[in-house]
Amino acid sequence: MPAETDVQTGTIMAWPTAHSVGDEKYPATGSEIRKTRQEVAEIAKAIAKHQPVEIFVRDPKLGEPARGFPDTNLSSAKEMLGRVKNMTLHVTQNVHSLWARDTGPVFVQSLHGPVRNTWGRSDDPGMGFSRKNTASETVGLLLNYNNWGRKLPPNVDAYFAGYTTQTLNKSSRIAPFVAEGGGIEVDGEGTLLATESSLLNPNRNPGIDKTTMERYFAEFLGIEKTIWIPGCRGADITDDHIDSIARFSAPGTVLLSKPFDNGKNGVLDAYHDAKEILSKATDAKGRRLKLIDVPEPDPRKVLGEDYDPQWSTVSYINYTLVNGAVVLAKFGDERFDEQAKRIVGEQFPGRVVEQVDLRELASQGGGIHCATQQIPA
């Protein structure tokens, strides 16, 4: 699996359906749905300045079972993005939520020539697919997305990874484990960061231990060394994904998200645990890791006093990298926003820092990285 700093041919994104914003317990208003889509559009526009964006939109002919809201999927996407250069809209039945990092494929490079997917005349390719033969050295690894450990009812996002891979004329392989793209972080030189709380969780991988999982990482991602962070089961819908905790800015250097101490017991415990483990760890090349803190703003200040910790994240390191730029969140606290821009920008010399206002996605438990998936060159 290439590092995110490597050259890319584009970025995958998904347009949120009205039904995917909020849930039955906390139904979204029409205003919240529009604001969520506007944030997704702004992320897409920032990326499109630097490379192509492939954005997948639910087919309006299928209807939208969304608590009485009219189907505005394609019309809203065209309104907000239809005239943006470097943007391609793909209409499909196989998309539901905006979280393409987790629902989409993780792209890896074959070390043994092109990987082929071949369909026979009598084969049934399944919902929304076609009998299209593919052969590619860039391969979409399908991670068996199960709604973050079956926390939500099944929906068509389960088909999104395979469908996108086929649409982009890439071959695919199914991993022998369940994960989401936000749950793994690689340096491109054989080292992987992950949380035990997400990947070694019976809601995803019952009965699979570290040794077995590391063997899978070696076979399917080319990993030689996995550094495990405990994480916290149930801390959020992802069970503590690594991409809001720790990210490689380069081999041997890790950016660590430091939560704001708002007086709640244990708010910094997971951070200190992660920092202690990483400070003692070595990577696949035997290097000790250099750790750089990126402080988070007070979530009460930027999301409101009634924010829900289980459905919110204000991590700056949930950025995404594209050719020549890093797309970074701006939460509305000027001091912290500027500090994050400086710290993250210093780690990516030669890249423009594109900051995008984020509130709705943050309130829904995700960020810019969660909404994107890179396609390596």
Rank of each mutant, 00 (worst) to 15 (best):
Met1Glu: 07
Pro2Arg: 09
Pro2Glu: 08
Ala3Glu: 09
Thr5Met: 11
Thr5Asn: 13
Asp6Gln: 07
Val7Ser: 13
Val7Ala: 15
Thr9Tyr: 08
Thr11Asp: 15
Thr11Ile: 15
Thr17Asp: 11
Lys25Thr: 14
Pro27His: 10
Ala28Pro: 13
Glu32Cys: 07
Thr36Lys: 08
Glu42Met: 15
Ala44His: 04
Lys45His: 08
Lys45Asp: 03
Ala46Asp: 09
His50Ile: 03
Glu54Asp: 09
Pro60Tyr: 05
Leu62Pro: 09
Gly63Asn: 06
Pro65Ile: 06
Pro65Ser: 06
Ala66Pro: 03
Arg67Ser: 12
Pro70Gly: 11
Asp71Met: 07
Asp71Gln: 07
Asn73Phe: 02
Leu74Val: 03
Ser75Trp: 01
Glu79Trp: 06
Met80Asn: 12
Arg83Trp: 05
Met87Glu: 02
Met87Arg: 04
Thr92Asn: 06
Trp99Phe: 10
Phe107Pro: 00
Val108Asn: 09
Leu111Trp: 04
His112Tyr: 14
Asn117Pro: 07
Arg121Phe: 14
Gly126His: 12
Ser130Trp: 07
Val139Cys: 07
Leu143His: 06
Asn147Glu: 15
Trp148Asp: 00
Gly149Arg: 04
Leu152Ile: 10
Asn155Val: 08
Ala158Glu: 15
Gly162Ala: 15
Tyr163Ala: 12
Tyr163Thr: 11
Thr164Leu: 15
Thr165Arg: 04
Ala175Met: 03
Pro176Val: 01
Val178Gln: 01
Glu185Ile: 04
Asp187Leu: 05
Glu196Thr: 10
Ser198Thr: 13
Asn201Tyr: 01
Asn201Gly: 01
Asn201Ala: 05
Arg204Tyr: 02
Gly207Leu: 03
Ile208Met: 13
Thr212Met: 05
Met213Ile: 00
Tyr216Ser: 01
Phe217Glu: 02
Phe220Lys: 07
Phe220Pro: 01
Leu221Gln: 09
Glu224Asp: 11
Lys225Ser: 11
Thr226Trp: 00
Thr226Asp: 04
Trp228Asp: 05
Pro230His: 09
Ala235Met: 06
Ala235Ser: 12
Ile237Asp: 13
Asp240Val: 02
Ile242Asn: 06
Asp243Trp: 06
Ser244Glu: 15
Arg247Val: 14
Ala250Tyr: 00
Pro251Val: 02
Leu256Asp: 06
Gly263Phe: 05
Val267Lys: 08
Val267Gln: 12
Tyr271Asn: 00
Tyr271Ile: 01
Tyr271Cys: 02
Ser279Ile: 05
Ser279Arg: 04
Thr282Asp: 04
Thr282Gln: 13
Asp283Trp: 03
Lys285Trp: 05
Arg288Phe: 01
Arg288Ser: 12
Leu289Met: 07
Asp293Tyr: 14
Val294Gln: 03
Gly304Gln: 00
Glu305Pro: 07
Asp306Glu: 11
Ser315Gln: 13
Ile317His: 13
Ile317Glu: 12
Asn318His: 11
Leu321Gly: 04
Asn323Lys: 02
Asn323Cys: 10
Val327Ser: 04
Leu328Arg: 03
Glu334Cys: 00
Asp337Arg: 02
Glu338Leu: 12
Gln339Asn: 15
Ile343Gly: 02
Ile343Lys: 06
Val344Cys: 05
Phe348Arg: 13
Val353His: 05
Glu354Pro: 03
Val356His: 04
Leu358Asp: 02
Gln364Tyr: 14
Gly366Glu: 07
Gly367Val: 05
His369Pro: 08
Cys370Tyr: 10
Thr372Pro: 13
Gln374Trp: 11
Gln374His: 05
Ala377Trp: 13
